[in-house]
Simulated assay, not measured.
Amino acid sequence: MTSTWWRGRRAPLVLVVVLLVVLATLVVVLSGPGEPGQAAPPQVTERSVAPVEPSAGPEREAVAGGMAKADPVSIDVPKIEAKSSLVPLGLNADNTVEVPPVTQPMQAGWYVHGPTPGEVGPSVILGHVDGNKQKGIFFRLKELAPGDQVSIARKDGTTAEFAVTKVERVAKDKFPTDAVYGDTTEPELRLITCGGVFDKASHNYLDNIIVFARLLAR
C-alpha cells in the first residue's frame, strides 16, 4: 500500500516540477533585453524598412532619364494614318495655347513652352479635328486606344516612340490643365484636338479629345 500510495502522489509532483522548470525557461527567453517578464520588441532592420528599388538596366534608364532636348520635326500615328510636320506653337495674348491655322487643318503643332518630345515631362502636340470644310490631322484621334504607337521625329536625327496609355473626352470648360501640362517623372506625350458636339452658335466644339502616351524604352 505504501509503495502504491507513493506512486500515486509522485506523478503529480514530478509534473509540477517539470512545469516550474518550463515556466522559468520561458521567463528567461521572453525577458531578453527588455523589461523583466516582458517580450522584447521585434528589432527593425535596415532591410525591412528600405524601399524596394526598381530593377536597373538600360531600358529602365532610357525611359526614366528621357532623351536630350531636341525640337520635334514631324509626327506619325499609323493607326489613324495621321502624318504631319510640326510647327511651333506659343501662347496667345490671353495666355491660351496657340493652335495651327484653321485654314491648314492637316497641320499639327507642338507647344514650345513645354518639354520637347522624349524629354522628361509632358510634351504637348495639338491639331484640328477639321477646318476649312475639310478633315483635320486629328480627325480620327478618338479612335486611338491603349497600346497604339505614336512616333515623333526630332531634329537631332532620333525618333521618340510613344505608346498610348489612355484616351479621354472632356468638356472644354472642365479641361484637366494639371493632368495635361503638370510635371511628370517620366517622358510623356499629350495629343489634343476638339471633339464632341459642334456648337453652331459659337462655331466651336464643346469638348476636347486628349490622348495620353508614355515614351517606350529604346
Rank of each mutant, 00 (worst) to 15 (best):
P51M: 02
A64Y: 03
P54H: 05
P88K: 13
A70T: 09
V52T: 13
A68H: 02
S55E: 12
P78R: 08
E61Q: 00
A56T: 06
P78I: 06
V52F: 03
P78V: 09
P72Y: 00
P78Q: 05
D71F: 04
L86V: 14
K79R: 13
S84G: 06
R60K: 11
I75S: 07
P51Y: 07
A82R: 13
G57F: 01
E53N: 11
A68G: 09
A68Q: 06
V77E: 00
P51I: 11
V52Q: 11
M67W: 02
A56L: 06
D76S: 04
P78W: 08
K83P: 14
A82C: 10
A56S: 08
D71H: 03
V87P: 00
E53D: 05
E53S: 02
G57Q: 13
G65Q: 03
E61P: 00
D71R: 07
P78C: 08
P51Q: 10
S84Q: 14
V52S: 05
G65T: 03
P72D: 06
K79D: 07
S85W: 10
E59K: 04
L89V: 14
S85M: 13
A82N: 09
M67C: 06
S85L: 13
G90K: 14
D71L: 04
G65L: 01
S85G: 14
I75L: 12
V73L: 11
S74L: 03
D76V: 04
D71M: 09
P78H: 06
V63R: 10
P51G: 04
P51T: 06
V63S: 03
A70E: 05
E53T: 06
E81N: 10
L89F: 12
P88A: 09
L86Y: 15
K69N: 11
S84E: 05
E53I: 04
K69F: 09
S55K: 15
V73H: 13
E59M: 02
P72I: 00
V73I: 12
D71G: 08
A68Y: 00
K69A: 15
K79M: 07
G65K: 11
S55C: 13
A56W: 01
L86E: 15
I80N: 13
V77S: 04
P58S: 08
G90P: 12
A62I: 00
E61M: 00
V52N: 12
K69L: 09
K69I: 01
E53G: 01
S85K: 15
S85E: 13
M67S: 03
A56N: 01
G66V: 09
S55A: 10
G65N: 05
V52H: 10
A82W: 03
I80Y: 13
L86G: 15
S55L: 14
A68K: 04
D71V: 08
S84N: 08
E81V: 05
V63K: 10
E53R: 07
K83F: 15
I75W: 01
A62P: 02
G65Y: 07
V73E: 15
L89Q: 10
P51F: 02
K79V: 13
D76W: 06
A68D: 12
A70C: 08
S84W: 01
P54E: 14
R60D: 01
A56M: 06
L89G: 12
P88N: 12
P72A: 00
V52D: 01
V73W: 07
